[in-house]
Structures are given as C-alpha cells and as structure tokens.
Design a protein around this nucleic acid. Structure first.
Lengths: 199, 199, 199, 199
DNA sequence: CATTAATCGAGACGGTACGTCTTGTCTTGCA
DNA sequence: TGCAAGACAAGACGTACCGTCTCGATTAATG
C-alpha cells in the first residue's frame, strides 16, 4: 500500500532503529521512563541524537513507538475457556513485568502534555487488546462454552484492570493471579449467561 | 500528636498550606502532573518556593500530600450488598475524575525514581481502600448476605482495577459503570460462596 | 543614579561575574571566539550555564560584555605630541594582542546576526577611543604644538585602522609600528595645519 | 594550468560552480558569514551539499574561494599621484561595500580555528593588494612625482586600514573618504621624501 | 522591651535534560 | 565518474525545571 513512497537519497539504516529500540528498552528496564535520557539512548545505541529525532519527534513518541508498538497479544487457544482465561492472564502479567510497563505508566503521566497521545494509546494499546479478548471469547462461543458474547467493554476493563491493580498497585505476587482471575472471570461470564437467558 | 515539637521563632502561617493545596490541585487539573512546576505553584499560591520546600521535601511528596492524603473513603451503607457495591463504585469513579487521578498516574510514573514511594502508595492509597472494602463486605456478612469474606486481595484488585481501566484507559462513560460492576462483583462473590461451601 | 534598583531576593554573587570574565578571557586566548563554548565557560568558572544566561542573553552578549567593556584607553601625556602618538600606538597595539581582539573580530563577524550589535560596538568601542584621541590632540593644542584640531573622523580611522591592518591583517611585527605610525601621523597633522592656514 | 588532471567518468558541470558562487554571494549579502549555511547554499544553488564539498573542503574555503578570489585590483592610472590615490581609495571602498567584506570579516573570526587560513589571507588578499600599491607608487616614481618608494609595509597598512576603519568600524559615509585619504596619504609620502632626503 | 529564632517573599544558583541546529561525511540510485 | 537527495556522527546552543541557598523583612515567644 505504501509502495509509492519514493526512495530518494541515502536510505535509512535499519540497524539504527534496532539500536534505538534496544537501548530504549534497556534503559526503561534499568532506570524507568522518567530517568531515561535521550543522550544516553543515543550513546548506547552508538548513534547521534539528531538521528533519533529524525525518526521520533520527542522522547514521548520514541518510547511510545518502541515500547507500545501494537503488541498484538497472541490469542490463547488451550481448548477450554478456563484454560484460555488463565493463559491470557499469564500473558498480560508477563507483559506487565517487562520494560514496556514502565513506559506505559510513564507515558500515561504525560498524556496531558501531548493531546492526541491519549487517542494513540487507545488505538495502539487498548483496542488491540480488546479485539484479542473478543476473539478469545468468540472461540468459546464456537466451542459451545458460551451462548453469546458478554458486555465486552466491561469484560475488557475488568480483565486488564484487575491485572494492572494486582501487580502494579497492590504489588501482589504475579504468579498467584492467573488462576484466581480465571475463576472470577468465569463466574462473571456464567452469571451474565444466566441473566441474559432469563431476560 | 507531635505537640511536643518546640515552637521557637515565628510560627508557620496556616494560610500557606491552604494556598499550596489550592494551587497544586488547580494545576493538576489544568496541565497534569508532568507540566505542573513548583515555580508556578509558588506563583499562584502567592508564596515562595522555599516556603513550599519547608513543608514538602520534593514535588512528588507535595503532590502526594495534597492529592492523595489517605482519603478514608466513606464505607457505603445502603442496606443491601448490591446497593453498597454500586455506591462504592460511584464513589471511586468520582474520585478518579478529580485532579487526584492525574496526581496518582504522574506519581506512579516516578516510582522508579524514588524507592519507597511505592510503599507510601500502598500505605496511603491502597491499604485504606482495601480496609474500606473489607468493612463493606463484613457488613454484608453481618447482614447475612454473605457467609464469609472472599479473597480480599482479588476482590480489591478487581474492584479498583476495573474502575481504573474503565475510566482512564478505555475512557468509557463513567456513569455506565457502577451498575455493571456491581452485577459482576456480585457474581464473583456468589460464585466464591458456592465454591467455598462445596469445599 | 541607579540607586532605586530595589534589591529583593538573593543578591547576585560578585564572584560569579569575575569567574565568567576570567574563564571567557582565558578561552578567548586559548581557542578564540568561534571555538569558545558556553559549557566550557561554565565549567571553568565553576558555575552553571543557567547562571551565565541570567546575566547575558547569548554567547555574543557575554563576550561583548566581558571583552569590550568600554575600555577607556588612558590618555597619553608624555609632554610632546610625538611622544603621545607613539605612546597611544603602543597602547592600542598592546590591546590588540590580548584576548579582547579575538573577541572583537569574532563578534564583528556576527554583527549581521544581531541587529543593534553594530551600534553597541560603536558606542562601546569606537566612540570612547575617538574621544580619547580627541583629548590627546586637544592637549597638543594647549601645548601649542597644534593650532587646531584636525578632521577627527579621518584621524581616528587612520590611527586605529593602521594599527589593525598592520598587526591583524598584514601580521607585521607589532613593535616596529609605533615609531613609524607616529611619524606618519605627525606628517598628516602638520600638513593639515598648513592647508588650513593657507585657506 | 592543471590541465593534465585526468578526467574519468562524468565531467563536472560548469553550471555548478556558477550556482555555488551566486548563492554564496547572495547569502553573504543577506545574512552574513555566520548565518550562511551550507544547506541553504546548496538549496539555493539547486545542487546537493556533496557537490559543494567535492569542490571546496569546508565552508571557510568555499567562502574564501568565492568571495576573496585574489581580486587583482586594477592599478589606477589617472596621470597624477593624487588622482591615483583617490582612485584606489574609491576602488577599495567599493569592494568593502559588497558581500566580500562580510566574508572577509567572518573568515577573520575563524583564523584561530584553521591555522594556515591566516597565510592564505595574506597571500590571496594582502599580498596582491600590496603589490598593487607598490606598482601604483612605482608609477609615480617613473613620473617623477616621487623620488623613491616609501616604507611599503606602513603605506599599505595605513591605506587599507584607514578604509577598513572608516567604513566598517566607524561607519562613516564611504563617499567622503577618498579625497581626504588621498590628501593624508600625499602628506605622509611627501614627509617621507623630505626625511629620506635629509638623511 | 529587647532578644531570639524561626518564617516568609524574592530570586540567584548548580545541575541536568531537552530539542534544535550546523558542519562535514557517507550511501543510495540515476544519468 | 558526477550528481541530487538526504541519512548520519558530533557537538554547541539556548531553554526549562528541580531542589538548595542567601538575602532582608516579619512575627511570635522569651528573658
């Protein structure tokens, strides 16, 4: 689709993007978003600051591009809904342990600075996850484990939000969550089925 | 409590604390945590920066003290568990609309910078809320609506996390949440009762 | 006269201005105007860049303030016009060997960048020198060595310009100039006397 | 002269040199040496930066080559020494009004950066002018207006230096200089004759 | 009533990161 | 090979913010 983008002049070096991403993720992991500096990213990537700014207009955008990049969570397929729920919880928990989370939280704190960043968040981070959740539950419907899709807005907020609060706010042990969350989610889904059936 | 603190010299002016709080909350609302500057707070409060720093050791601590200040959510008491759950959801949603949220998120992004801030968070924000939740469910137990308390860690993470994700991340309409969340929470609680009873 | 300048807040430290001047002159001497960097000035002066910029709005202005500062050449008074001329030539030659000259030339190259800098030059550098020249020749008139003042514009341009071209452009030996210049200047002055007398 | 330079591949386009010179002189006139950028020169010339750097090793050299290019001032020949002096003054004044002057001053400010630039200056700018001056005065000797050549170092510094100071530093009206300078120069020359004769 | 000790407004200061700009080099593909 | 286009490394510029500091002027409690 974007084939018509004519190449003129020296093409950008792929190595650069890789190096920026590597350095950024490293630093996010080591010192977090607030103390990540562009000079240090450039230094570690072995490139110059100007080269970073040719690709990303600001620190925010760079971190966003590197750390959020529409992750496309893999849709779990364990054979049972309960297994899928546990699997998904595990995946999200895993994600929230990597450097991406520090990026996520740091950027969230600067949403007010850059109008439009909020929308970018929704479309790059929230929306794909929501679609993944939907696909997972549609699978369950096809398997006959669910009669219909529940209120996806609520399900999505509940599932992701619980993981967030459990690990980042309450700082509970991550490995203890998936099983419990799966149980709770199943309860909600079954209850919704009954409620819908009786209406 | 710390009355024994000897007073010598000129006493602090109460007006100052009020002005700091007012200016801080204003700015949090207008530009968010990241773009709130100490100079601007001082300027709006009509005081000097040194005066702020005499009370609060850093920007983080100031915002923390002003915006988080262990709110002691009032324990809802509507007569029914379902009513209480809706009421609580409404209260939390309300809180997350004020400037306190911007403070919360901004500070969260600087947890890596200041070790110990995380603990402060837990003790000033998470723990009181957890206790409130517990009190609310104990009420339901006394009323006979629940046989016993559920896994409070999970309940708390789920309840608060869902509100957070619904309003801040997904940016759904706040007023649509309380009823749905109460339904979901009830489903989880009832399911846990059954599961516990059969064990 | 500027007594009404109310002092509020912490007063500026005199040490800072001294340190800036010292570091700037040192660097002008070592690497010249173009390669003098604000970071290095700050570093050598043991102060921060912000402190420099509080006093001087740009590199240009800083160098200007430090190196040009209306030097008020001392008016020579050797007893004879010829002696005074030689003395003055020696003084100017001496000045053009210090770091101030590198500043002068470097700034001259950036006159186009900052409109108004040209005027500042004239009033801080040219005008005082012209007045000094005038005072010197008035002395000669009082002594009876001259009947009247010559065309001061021409005299000034000739005297200063010759020193400039001799040392900076042609790069001749500085010590050989004063005597020759005094002779030439005397010739011009005497010739002007004759010409004026016969008119 | 260097015709033996092997030509391989595509020959250089003459149009390019013209365009570089045109753009450079334009920019020197508009914004001066310091704010002239290589990118803007390339852009205006409709060529690429690499093409400039294939011809000129640096900004300094480019400006030098374009603006100074050993002008070979035409030796005036009006029939009288006084006429020649006025004529020469007029020529120099004319030169110092064009973009060449901004180049001259700008480059002078970077002499410290590039050792050797000073020598280039002398050989490309000072020396030819000195030779021109000498030729002019030899003409006067042949005509019998002078008995012998004066101290050419001094004469040259005085003549050129006066024009420089008059127009660039003092910023006097250029058209008022030639007649006055001719008179002064004549006075110096005549005085030197007397002095030499009496020795 | 004078002393004392802390407070306050104002703003200078050191440190540090940001994002921009310019120079001179290098790498494509086309002619 | 020459050239247009433009990416790249290096590094200076001027701005912004934080948290500390130094003034001089208050303002109670104490001696």
């Amino acid at each position: 689709m974007q084939e018509q983008a004519q190449r003129m002049g020296r093409p950008r070096e792929g190595r650069v993007d890789t190096a920026i991403a590597k350095a950024t993720l490293e630093l996010l992991g080591e010192v977090g978003y607030a103390r990540l500096t562009m000079d240090e990213v450039a230094s570690r990537a072995g490139i110059s600051k100007a080269t970073i700014y040719r690709r990303h207009p600001s620190k925010q955008e760079m971190v966003f591009a590197v750390a959020i990049h529409g992750d496309e969570l893999p849709i779990p397929d364990t054979g049972t809904l309960r297994g899928d729920l546990e699997q998904l919880a595990r995946t999200i928990v895993g994600h929230l342990s990597g450097p991406a989370t520090k990026a996520l939280i740091g950027l969230l704190g600067e949403v007010d600075t850059d109008p439009g960043l909020a929308d970018r968040f929704v479309s790059a981070f929230i929306e794909p996850e929501r679609l993944g959740n939907t696909a997972m539950l549609e699978q369950a419907v096809r398997r006959g484990e669910l009669a219909r899709l529940p209120d996806m807005n609520l399900f999505h907020a509940m599932f992701g939000g619980t993981v967030l609060a459990w690990t980042l706010l309450a700082r509970n042990a991550p490995e203890e969550l998936p099983e419990r969350l799966a149980t709770a989610a199943l309860a909600v889904l079954r209850d919704a089925e009954l409620r819908a059936g009786s209406t």
